[in-house]
């Protein structure tokens, strides 16, 4: 074991600011990214549900061209 006590561990040989500054920001950013990604999923689902109700289920199906066909070209070739 490298450390004599927990306070020595947190002190990092006097470099606490640099070491914990690095790790803190890194893990904060990763946590933030995770939250944003999970929230984006929730937002997408609520938005698309509302959109489907607004346009009606039948016309939502294959009405616009940009969504593409349900069976993609990759598979239909083989």
């Amino acid at each position: 074991m490298q450390w004599e006590s927990w306070s020595a561990f947190w002190n990092m040989g006097g470099a606490a600011y640099f070491v914990w500054g690095s790790y803190g920001v890194t893990f904060a950013l990763m946590a933030l990214e995770l939250v944003l990604v999970l929230r984006r999923r929730k937002d997408t689902i609520t938005r698309l549900l509302r959109w489907r109700r607004a346009v009606g289920k039948d016309s939502a199906r294959g009405s616009a061209k940009e969504g593409g066909t349900p069976v993609p070209a990759m598979e239909s070739e083989t």
Partner: peptide, 15 residues
């Protein structure tokens, strides 16, 4: 996954 739902929203399986 979110992007796929968004892009494929006109398909039946996303419905």
């Amino acid at each position: 996954r979110s992007m796929i739902l968004e892009r494929e929203r006109h398909t039946e399986w996303v419905g």
